[in-house]
Amino acid sequence: MNDDVVKNRHTETSTVHPATDAAVSVHDLTVAYREQPVLWDVDLDIPSGVLAAIVGPNGAGKTTLLKSLLDLVPSVSGRIRFHGEPFRARRRDVAYVPQRGSVDWDFPTTVADVVTMGTYRRLGWLRRPGHTEHEAAMTALRRVGMADLATRQISELSGGQQQRVFLARALVQDASVYIMDEPFQGVDATTERTIIELLKELRGEGRTVLVVHHDLQTVPDYFDWVALLNVRLVAAGPVREVFTQENLRLAYGGRVGFAGTKEPTSGPDKDPTSSYMGRIRP
């Protein structure tokens, strides 16, 4: 309904950034819970084949953005496209990794079974997973280094292992866009390394990876593209260009300090922001 209006208003920008070029493009997205805007008029084009971070303070609407990409929350206005098409037409190409805490890990099932759920989209209604699907699940488990835990009950896993199971489940979907909600939340260092290596592999295969991320210090190491969000979109683009202290202050307000991006009172070496700031702005 709102699509026409949005299209008209965006004819200019659309010619500048043709939506089909972007893996994910968001135009004029506003999401509100009981008339309280959680996302205000967000415009965002994520190019194909990048490893992108979405950062922003608590309550910035990061998870909401992901959920509206996946049609899980209704939007008040705006349009979302995956490779130029609505999500409904592109379900097969989009894999979603929810927050680890969003499911009940006491559920009576095994690691391999959870990973197999990633094949359900291809199977559709009523068809049961068979040999092919189990093989695909095992391959994905091997990639995340969890093949030997395939028959384990999921409640016996550590936090990092749970996250890797979720990642394997997304790998099985063989999607072109991966959307992940805080995959590094509360995982051990080994898992964090495994995950980031895998995400870089996915990017290497030409896939687009979109990650809600909390740890500002690792953004320059892990990602090549970043969106700074705080209800509105503060900035988006290649990390080298937009991950500046100025933009961070705009996104985080006075609270930039909390993730290790303090003003360089503790010396320039200790401050991660200043070190890459130096690279961008001599």
């Binding site: 049609d71 979603y96 969003s102 499911v103 759920m117 009523l126």
Partner: peptide, 22 residues
């Protein structure tokens, strides 16, 4: 038994079920 897969998925992870089109 007919909807075993679907019921399992939606009970374990409703958000994923929705994203996968169930």
């Amino acid at each position: 038994s007919v909807f075993f897969k679907e019921l399992k998925l939606v009970t374990f992870d409703p958000a994923l079920a929705a994203a996968l089109g169930f």
